[in-house]
């Protein structure tokens, strides 16, 4: 049971953004994906979630091929993500931002939604209760009614995470979830991510903060120039000369 990328490739015109990438994200574990800026990490998340067309290779979730499935079906297959460049619904309140995450679990018929029948109202109320539970868990209960567009980046990132979790995914792809957060905030999230994995969710964690990745992941992949240059346990990978070169080179570029 895993999310498996098999020889995944992506070209933008002449630019090779990823080439023959093989990654496995098992359930119940946190898998790290690191690499210097422009290595192609976000591109991979975009391909998995159906935001970008795949140039070559396949993507499978628990043996279902989702390589060419449209984005909304991929969500219904149990995948959720957060965005590196934050994408919230700025006009809506925090609570409404999370409510939309429950979309895939809403069952009431279109007709009862249209007519405002009790079934639709009950469902909305139930989703609100679940959204409030999530807010509690992320310590943002008091911000429920605020327009999401006015929150700090740290809070907006957490809104994205709650929204993704609301869809109750089997796998969640986190693209730099702690960027711009302080140590206290990121420590709290580390605990949360651990809990999620322990509850059986597969997590793909993209982060530039290597300490954070090392602490949480048992297995990490290193990407550079669209190719995997190393994978394995964090300590082994981070002492790999190829990785050091990529990072040192990357930082000076």
């Amino acid at each position: 049971m895993a999310l498996v990328l098999d020889n995944l490739s992506k070209r933008f015109g002449g630019v090779v953004a990823s080439e023959n990438v093989n990654i496995t994200v098992p359930k119940g574990k946190i898998t790290g994906l690191i690499g210097p800026n422009g290595a192609g990490k976000t591109t991979i998340v975009n391909m998995i979630t159906g935001m970008l067309a795949v140039s070559g290779g396949t993507i499978r979730v628990d043996d279902t091929d989702i390589t060419r499935a449209p984005a909304d079906q991929i969500c219904r297959a149990g995948l959720a993500r957060t965005f590196q460049n934050i994408r919230i619904l700025p006009e809506n309140s925090v609570l409404d931002n999370i409510l939309i995450g429950f979309h895939r679990h809403e069952r009431c018929s279109t007709l009862s939604a249209l007519l405002g029948l009790p079934a639709s109202r009950r469902e909305t109320a139930a989703m609100r209760a679940r959204a409030e539970a999530l807010l509690e868990r992320f310590g943002m209960r008091h911000l429920a009614e605020y327009p999401a567009g006015g929150l700090s980046y740290g809070h907006q990132r957490r809104v994205e995470m709650m929204r993704a979790l609301a869809s109750e995914p089997e796998y969640i792809l986190l693209d730099e979830p702690i960027a711009g957060m302080n140590d206290v905030e990121s420590d709290a999230l580390a605990v949360l991510f651990r809990d999620l994995a322990d509850s059986g969710i597969g997590i793909l964690l993209i982060e530039h903060n290597l300490r954070f990745v090392t602490r949480l992941c048992e297995h990490i992949y290193v990407l550079d120039g669209g190719r995997l240059i190393a994978e394995g346990a964090p300590e082994a990978v981070l002492s790999d000369p190829a990785v050091l070169t990529a990072y040192v080179g990357g930082e000076h570029a």
Partner: peptide
């Protein structure tokens, strides 16, 4: 213009 959100890729 890119856009795979509206259907099959």
């Amino acid at each position: 213009e890119a856009g795979s959100l509206r259907g099959r890729r």
